[in-house]
Simulated assay, not measured.
Amino acid sequence: MTDLDRDFWEDRYRAGTDRWDLGGPSPPLTAYIDGLTDQELRILVPGAGRGYEAEYLYRAGFENLTIVDLARRPLDDLRRRLPELPAAALQQTDFFSFRGGPFDLILEHTFFCALPPARRPDYVQAMHRLLVPGGRLAGLFFDFPLTEDGPPFGGSETEYRNRFSSLFHIRKLERARNSIPPRAGTELFFIFEKK
Score class of each variant (00 low, 15 high):
residue 63 E to I: 01
residue 65 L to I: 12
residue 29 L to Y: 02
residue 33 I to H: 08
residue 63 E to Q: 14
residue 67 I to P: 08
residue 1 M to Q: 03
residue 169 H to E: 15
residue 71 A to D: 13
residue 86 P to R: 13
residue 152 P to T: 02
residue 83 P to S: 09
residue 131 L to H: 03
residue 14 R to V: 13
residue 44 L to D: 02
residue 85 L to M: 13
residue 51 G to S: 07
residue 156 S to H: 08
residue 17 T to N: 14
residue 47 G to I: 01
residue 68 V to T: 10
residue 147 T to L: 06
residue 73 R to Q: 14
residue 163 R to W: 06
residue 42 R to S: 15
residue 20 W to C: 11
residue 92 Q to G: 04
residue 22 L to S: 05
residue 103 F to L: 01
residue 35 G to N: 11
residue 164 F to C: 07
residue 80 R to T: 07
residue 195 K to P: 06
residue 192 F to N: 09
residue 43 I to A: 05
residue 133 P to E: 10
residue 27 P to I: 09
residue 3 D to H: 11
residue 40 E to N: 15
residue 141 F to G: 00
residue 128 H to P: 03
residue 131 L to E: 00
residue 194 K to E: 07
residue 121 P to L: 06
residue 77 D to V: 05
residue 165 S to H: 14
residue 100 G to F: 05
residue 126 A to W: 04
residue 29 L to N: 13
residue 97 S to E: 14
residue 8 F to R: 07
residue 172 K to G: 04
residue 153 F to D: 03
residue 150 G to W: 04
residue 125 Q to I: 00
residue 138 A to V: 14
residue 154 G to A: 04
residue 49 G to K: 02
residue 180 I to D: 09
residue 9 W to M: 09
residue 28 P to N: 11
residue 183 R to M: 14
residue 129 R to T: 15
residue 156 S to Q: 05
residue 18 D to S: 09
residue 155 G to H: 07
residue 141 F to H: 08
residue 136 R to K: 11
residue 185 G to S: 11
residue 69 D to A: 11
residue 34 D to P: 00
residue 80 R to P: 11
residue 63 E to G: 14
residue 192 F to H: 09
residue 61 G to W: 10
residue 90 L to F: 03
residue 62 F to C: 09
residue 126 A to G: 03
residue 169 H to S: 11
